[in-house]
């Protein structure tokens, strides 16, 4: 039997708005994934350390304060430094459309903005898992 997919939902930065993060964490848990939620106000370093320690396959970042351009790429960069770039990083929050290309080129695999559904996020995770199993 395949190992259960482990997902870290994380709130980088100082932003305390975690209604969305909590919903995603609980929704993914109800969908059968193993989910760890960091709580708010995490540094990029602590998120990466938790991800590695918990051996997760995915990190979902949530940020509504506008600091995504600084903090999201930093997390991907730290994962690379730790040779953990196989962890898939995706993000969500109040993120203007025009910021999405640069976040993707920085290594974020997907960005979900307001109105995205749990179903879309699960489809994304499953398609990443599918690609992983092929490789």
């Amino acid at each position: 039997m395949a190992k259960r997919v482990r997902i870290l939902i994380a709130k980088p930065g100082l932003d305390g708005h975690d209604r969305g993060a909590k919903f995603i964490a609980r929704g993914l848990r109800d969908a059968g994934y193993e989910v760890i939620y960091t709580g708010i106000r995490q540094t990029p370093e602590s998120i990466v350390a938790t991800a590695i320690q918990e051996d997760v396959g995915f990190i979902g970042l949530s940020l509504l304060s506008g600091a995504h351009n600084e903090l999201f790429p930093r997390i991907v960069e730290l994962l690379r430094r730790e040779n953990a770039e196989d962890i898939v990083v995706f993000g969500g929050g109040i993120i203007p459309d025009e910021d999405i290309p640069q976040l993707k080129s920085a290594g974020l695999r997907a960005i979900f903005t307001p109105g995205a559904t749990l179903k879309q996020i699960i489809e994304f995770i499953e398609s990443c898992q599918h690609d992983r199993n092929l490789s």
């Binding site: 930065g13 100082l14 932003d15 106000r41 540094t43 600091a67 351009n69 600084e70 903090l71």
Partner: peptide, 22 residues
Amino acid sequence: DLPTQVGLDSDHALAQGEVGKV
């Protein structure tokens, strides 16, 4: 902004990316 709300100066490491945002 959030650094002000949590009592950090703008030059604090945790304030990076958050100064003047919200």
